[in-house]
Design a protein around this nucleic acid. Structure first.
Length: 477
RNA sequence: CGGGAUGUAGCCUAGUGGCUAAGGCGCCUGCUUUGGGAGCAGGAGAUCGGAGGUUCGAAUCCUCUCAUCCCGACCA
């Protein structure tokens, strides 16, 4: 048998690419840095979309759609924003066979075009808050790409909200960060650290960037979602004002927040193994596969029996039955493991005689034999167990990968040898932050909420000066 | 954009100047099979990434070019 997936222990990058290609989640497309999301990958995205979209709606947001093309001049209106994004913008210079008067930028993000519209839509405090989300594609010209994790074009959602007060906008940014944390933990079974980004890591144009950071199996961190408090930066750049209840003219306060198809990469790298994908049941496009095992003389009876068991699972689960008679059962087992279906139900002639079925967990490989009458109930509880168990396992790994250190020697040693998150006192200076990056390639992933209190009386692990923060460092994607 | 590597059938690989480019996987047809990636027989599928050059003769040597992957600098 040919090994189709490079073991993680041999080469983690190859393993990741093998999983994506062999599980048919995506494929390389002709333009460098772009990829095709194949049906199995897109189905995962659809699962994520529907869960997130419901959460956005539940917090009062509405969906809309803004255009792909943005006048170049819009981007230049916010100084930091243009500085941050100009190098990675794709620009359209020709259209209709003629050179355009003004080049058009393909959106790397939509703040500018959205705020140009918000100027038209907002006059009074009665128009606020304005809570809009869009599901869209964006383009950022990346030099180094990786399937799902970093591609030139990707899919995401971007929420853009406008508020009357700073307090309300900050609350919104934190509320959406919490939505992302909940989604990551409850749906993706992925524990995350939350907090605020350092000055050098924050979004171009934001006052504060909040993020969720997850740990991958190779002990590198991955930013899985961001939420920005934009202050009045864009309101001022686009002159968006409203008349308050007290009749004063004020600039609007803003947030934006997003997660992308990168989450699919996070999901793969968090849970999968050398046999293929491992998916949390809540997001798995197919939750249960039923495989009849038959010989020629028993084929009809076994299939008939298997169909009844399959039907007994009910309509609330996403299930398939694999009746193909060309491939052997062993082949099917491997194939469905590759795809990451959480529970497999095997039914052969012996099971039929005894009125039972064999259930197999994808995450642990554990097999159990269950009377057919109990299959539906047992499958439901197994799916719950798998969801919980994946999270627990990932949580234990996150804990194991988190090291608190006080000295620079320890910091370098841990980052070099063990990887993972390093939690250390930091003086808050860009110099110390830069030194760590220079020496270890690690960056500050997040400054946890409330870290300033804990930093009191401590000294910076890098400079030895009084610490202002307790920072979480890691090498990252 | 620097450093490294690789381009031969859908995929993986052999072939380092000489006959009609070889094998495995996959694919198609038929039969036989089916409890962890089955077996037999037959079959289709390649102008060897592209262009130019050297040579009686090039997948193989030279020049240029394109693409992809890996490692760095930049980023969700």
């Amino acid at each position: 048998m040919a090994q189709r997936i490079t073991p993680r222990s041999k080469n983690y990058s190859d393993w990741y690419v093998d999983i994506v290609l062999n599980a048919k989640l995506a494929d390389y497309s002709p333009v460098k840095g772009t990829m095709v999301i194949r049906p199995r990958g897109y189905a995962l995205w659809e699962r994520m979309q529907s869960a997130l979209d419901a959460m956005f709606k539940a917090t009062g947001h509405e969906n809309a759609y803004f255009p792909l093309l943005i006048p170049e001049s819009f981007l230049k209106k916010e100084a930091e924003h243009v500085e941050g994004f100009a190098p990675e913008c794709a620009v359209v210079t020709h259209g209709g066979g003629e050179e355009l008067d003004e080049p058009l930028v393909i959106r790397p993000t939509s703040e500018t075009i959205i705020w140009s519209m918000y100027k038209k839509w907002i006059q009074s405090y009665r128009d606020l808050p304005l809570l809009i989300n869009q599901w869209a594609n964006v383009v950022r010209w990346e030099k180094r790409t990786r399937l799902f994790l970093r591609t030139t074009e990707f899919l995401w959602q971007e929420g853009h909200t406008a508020h009357a007060t700073e307090k309300e906008a900050r609350e919104e940014a934190l509320r959406m960060l919490e939505v992302y944390r909940t989604f990551a933990e409850e749906y993706m079974a992925l524990p995350v650290y939350t907090g605020v980004k350092s000055e050098s890591e924050k979004f171009a144009g934001a006052v504060d960037t909040y993020a969720i950071e997850a740990m991958m199996q190779d002990r590198k961190a991955l930013q899985a979602g961001t939420s920005h408090f934009l202050g009045q930066n864009f309101a001022k750049a686009f002159d968006v004002t409203f008349q308050s209840q007290e009749s004063t003219l004020e600039h609007v306060w803003a947030t934006s927040w997003g997660v992308s198809t990168r989450l699919i990469g996070a999901l793969i790298m968090a849970h999968s193994d050398d046999s293929g994908l491992v998916l949390p049941p809540k997001l798995a496009p197919t939750q249960v596969v039923v495989i009849p095992i038959f010989k020629n003389d028993t084929k009809d009876q076994v299939i008939e029996f298997t169909r009844r068991v399959h039907a007994s699972l009910g309509k609330d689960l996403r299930t398939v039955i694999d009746e193909d008679d060309k491939n052997s059962p062993g082949w099917k087992f491997s194939e469905w493991e590759m795809v990451g279906v959480p529970v497999r139900v095997e039914i052969g002639p012996r099971d039929m005689e005894r009125g039972q079925a064999v259930l197999v967990r994808r995450d642990t490989g554990e097999k159990s034999t269950v009377p057919v009458a109990e299959v539906a109930g047992r499958v439901h509880s197994l799916l719950d167990e798998i969801q919980t168990s994946l999270f627990r396992k990932a949580k234990a790994f996150q804990t194991e990968c988190t090291h608190e250190v006080d000295t620079y020697e320890d910091m370098k040693r841990v980052l070099e040898n063990e990887g993972g998150f390093v939690v250390a006192p930091w003086d808050g200076s860009p110099e110390s932050e830069a030194r760590v990056k220079e020496d270890t390639k690690a960056t500050i992933r997040v400054l946890p909420f409330g870290n300033e209190e804990k930093a009191k009386g401590k000294t910076c692990a890098i400079s030895g000066k009084p610490a202002k923060h307790i920072a979480v460092f890691a090498k990252s994607y």
